[in-house]
């Protein structure tokens, strides 16, 4: 490796800036496009809608960033969300005769969601980290399991929260403080905490080390299995929190709840500049990635610019572009 010394001490410096700018430029371009196409784009209502609907995928994607940074992957989050939502609704409906419709039931429901999320995450994490099965296979398996379980719980139909409960629970999605709705607040808080954990704690550093080279991490007395399990448990917890915000929106869960959330979350993470093979992750990038994905859908709905048949194609092109933008620069080294 003696050439490496000679040929690349200069590489690190300026390429990093463009890698950082890539996703932000894509986001700004979309905002500009939106403003140009529809004057209502920047309205309070539309901005609130876009941010609030980003919150579910966003909260999940923050957890996904840790999993991917540590060299893992979780395909089960969408199904897990549907299952937890179904479970939460069933428990809350069942408790109405016992506790009477009220805030108490909602707190119990939230607890159920969080505990279920933690358990589901722990199952994935232990199978991956302790038993040593590939994350792709484990979570592909649990993806199918949770999806079937929710279909089974709902008897193939839709699980609906009792109307009386729905009225009490509604403000958790539609309400807020100082004009900012709760999902946006929760998403922001989780994103900020995630950024701090990723950049400034031993846990975040350990995730990057494991994703970068698991053997090095192990030889550096990092408890690889523990950290890896914790990334999945953290993701499970965040799925639980996302469900807490999701259920009051429509008050129902069915087999079609959370379909493709996993892919959207993974796409957001990668658009944000986290490496799919692990070793490097950034939460703020993931947030930008989530917003990019939401804005694409929003802008397409706000205009008749392209045939709705082509929505998926437009999304695909923009996702690839956002990643190409940053990779091209970083490849120059």
């Amino acid at each position: 490796m003696s050439t490496a010394t000679t040929d690349s001490p200069k590489s690190a410096g300026w390429s990093i800036d463009l890698r950082v700018l890539g996703p932000i430029l894509a986001l700004l371009a979309l905002v500009a496009l939106g403003m140009f196409l529809n004057p209502n784009f920047l309205s309070y209502a539309n901005i609130t809608n876009v941010l609030a609907r980003s919150a579910f995928i966003g909260i999940v994607a923050v957890g996904m960033t840790f999993v991917i940074t540590a060299g893992g992957l979780d395909l089960s989050v969408g199904s897990m969300a549907a299952f937890i939502a179904g479970l939460m609704i069933l428990v809350m409906n069942a408790l109405i005769p016992v506790m009477g419709a009220g805030v108490g039931i909602i707190l119990v429901g939230m607890l159920v969601a969080i505990v279920a999320g933690l358990i589901a995450g722990a199952i994935n994490g232990l199978l991956v980290a302790k038993i040593g099965i590939e994350a792709f296979i484990v979570t592909l398996g649990t993806m199918g399991i949770y999806r079937s379980l929710v279909t089974w719980l709902a008897d193939g139909g839709t699980l609906s929260l009792d109307f009386a409960m729905r009225e009490i629970y509604r403000p958790v999605y539609y309400g807020g403080i100082m004009g900012i709705s709760w999902p946006i607040i929760v998403f922001a808080v989780i994103a900020i905490l995630g950024e701090i954990v990723m950049r400034h704690t031993a846990f975040g550093r350990h995730c990057a080390a494991i994703g970068s080279n698991e053997t090095v991490a192990r030889y550096s007395s990092v408890n690889v299995a523990r950290v890896r399990t914790l990334t999945f448990i953290g993701l499970g917890l965040l799925v639980g929190i996302a469900v807490i915000m999701y259920v009051p929106r429509l008050g129902s869960a069915s087999a079609s709840t959370g379909v493709l959330w996993e892919l959207e979350a993974i796409a957001a993470v990668i658009i944000g500049g986290t490496m799919l093979k692990g070793g490097f992750g950034r939460i703020w990038g993931t947030v930008v990635g989530v917003l990019i994905l939401s804005l694409i859908g929003n802008i397409l709905n706000l205009t008749d610019m392209v045939s709705p048949y082509l929505n998926g194609a437009i999304q695909g092109v923009i996702i690839i572009l956002a990643v190409v933008l940053q990779r091209k620069r970083s490849n120059s080294r």
Partner: peptide
């Protein structure tokens, strides 16, 4: 339901 919710939200903005 979720997709229809999103589409409708955007119709209402538009």
């Amino acid at each position: 339901r979720d997709d229809a919710f999103t589409v409708m939200q955007d119709y209402l903005s538009r």
